[in-house]
Design a protein around this nucleic acid. Structure first.
Lengths: 303, 303
DNA sequence: ACGGATCCATAGAATGTTTCTATGAGGCTG
DNA sequence: CAGCCTCATAGAAACATTCTATGGATCCGT
């Protein structure tokens, strides 16, 4: 992944726009650049990718079959970049935002950007401020009025706050495909899980607290194999083959889907936790905060 | 998403490396650039993001809290970009690859890049060639020996091919949060689904064929509301509020997770389909093809 | 307390890419 | 056949990244 010569996001966005509008010049106009500039950028992109992606016609441009795939993959990349920029923009506005939000790390990392992207068409002029802190501090900030709405994970429900379920999340035990547990055929007993040194998030994180609370009754936990400060750092450690880790399902959805990581479900242990929106009890949320809550609380029927 | 000033992937990769190695100079060395160059790029990145991400210390550099979030989000972006580059590279090598692969579109788009990324450490020197075609053509290519292994979706199992299950995939009916169905409380009857004009993939696509096959027995299907040539084009149409669409679960996992799209499950209709690896019957796969198959066929215990 | 090592930032010049405006080539349409 | 659309090319200006060389700050060991 490091040795790669990365493509240029602006060129990818341009290609996506061309695919939507059907022409290089039209896309250039939409993005506010000149047509020759767009033309040259696309050529550079094609050279970088090593595959022709556009079929230039006198009446416009169509994608090649490869181009179609590139556009679809590019939308994923741009979506992730959009989430990054949305998240960063919200964090930058900690103070003086029209809608100050506080969220615990897992929610902030995996859900808040999506919500804010969905909020944009509904409340286009609202600047959202985001503070990422642990669940206890989220409660403090909301109670102190420094955040109008907060999002917490884990079992504890602070007093003085009203709450609403916005999702569920399950902690999963994951291993890389090379790990012995990937091939095990006997179920994993909670006892054995508790006794195994694991890669875990740092103490104080919602993930760690939830895990320790749930495992409490299955005997003393072994010392962690490794303690890391972010979900993705744990994933990096996993990639190099190191032993089992405990992570939020949200953090490993992609890797589980294509088999880069495997989940090992311990028998009879419920690692599910609730993700909740919280606000000051008795206060009626309205305006943007209400829109955000509505949006976040929407779940597919039957889930 | 269009008006964004996109960040620079190489700068993000640099930041991620700094977070892993704990120093600007060390990261520069690893990436093969000079230390001042790295320093200046990180400064530009910080300016672009508008948030300080690095705490410069005399002994190295640590991330700020915001920086930690940025790194985690950046890893998602880089992962998606890696998938894009991996996919494109494989497509470029259609001919003359050591391991020629053919895959139907949904598998190629959402699963193959992940498999190839996972294959890299196992078979570092193997060049993979990827042809993206419909399921029928995958069978032809495999039988003709132009692909050593193929991946197909959908119910039909061509003769002369051995197969192995590599995953399951469910088609889902999805709507944007603004659609009336997002608020419906009565279950969706197959009858009503069949009678509703939908946004669907083009005729001949695996997704379309599977859907039509399954719905056949629930009455005649209404004319499509819109026919689009890729999963992401369907998603774009959905985002602007247009009515229900049928897509692979794989294509909308992220959007379902954070509520940007909602699934409406029709009552008593099984839209699950099998994803299979196929190869010439009687032939024993070995070498890289075997590694790829093993990798793709790995599933978490109990799924 | 002081030299050496390590770390990051700055200065200034060279290189490469992107940007623009102006213009050309090709094909459709009235 | 003229006008209009498409995209590509040419050449100049602006910008960013790159390098080498150097400086300032802190830590460590003597």
């Amino acid at each position: 992944m490091r040795l790669n010569r990365w493509p240029d996001l602006e060129a990818l966005a341009l290609l996506v726009t061309v695919s939507e509008l059907g022409g290089v010049g039209r896309a250039a106009r939409q993005l506010g650049i000149s047509q020759p500039s767009a033309s040259s950028r696309l050529r550079t992109l094609e050279r970088r990718l090593g595959v022709p992606v556009l079929q230039r016609l006198p009446v416009g441009s169509r994608l090649t079959a490869e181009g179609q795939m590139v556009v679809d993959w590019a939308r994923e990349v741009l979506g992730a970049a959009d989430a990054l920029m949305t998240g960063v923009t919200a964090m930058r506005r900690e103070r003086g935002a029209a809608l100050p939000v506080a969220a615990s790390m897992t929610v902030a990392e995996y859900l808040v950007p999506g919500w804010l992207i969905a909020l944009r068409p509904v409340e286009p002029d609202v600047t959202v401020g985001l503070q990422v802190v642990n669940s206890a501090r989220v409660a403090e900030l909301v109670l102190a009025g420094e955040a109008e709405i907060g999002f917490v994970e884990g079992p504890s429900l602070p007093v003085g706050l009203a709450s609403r379920l916005v999702g569920r999340d399950r902690l999963v035990v994951v291993v890389s495909p090379g790990h012995p547990w990937a091939r095990r055929r006997t179920p994993l007993r909670p006892r054995e899980l508790a006794a195994t040194p694991l890669i875990v998030r740092e103490p104080g994180s919602g993930t760690r607290i939830t895990f320790e609370t749930v495992m409490e009754r299955h005997g003393p936990l072994a010392e962690p194999l490794l303690e890391l400060g972010s979900n993705s750092a744990v994933k990096v450690a996993l990639a190099s083959g190191a032993g089992p880790a405990v992570l939020s399902e949200l953090a490993v959805a992609d890797e589980l889907a294509d088999g880069r990581l495997l989940a090992v479900h311990p028998e009879g242990v419920d690692l599910q936790r609730k993700l909740r929106a919280v606000w000051i009890e008795g206060r009626r949320l309205d305006g943007p905060a209400r829109s955000l809550l509505t949006l976040a609380a929407r779940r597919p029927l039957g889930s």
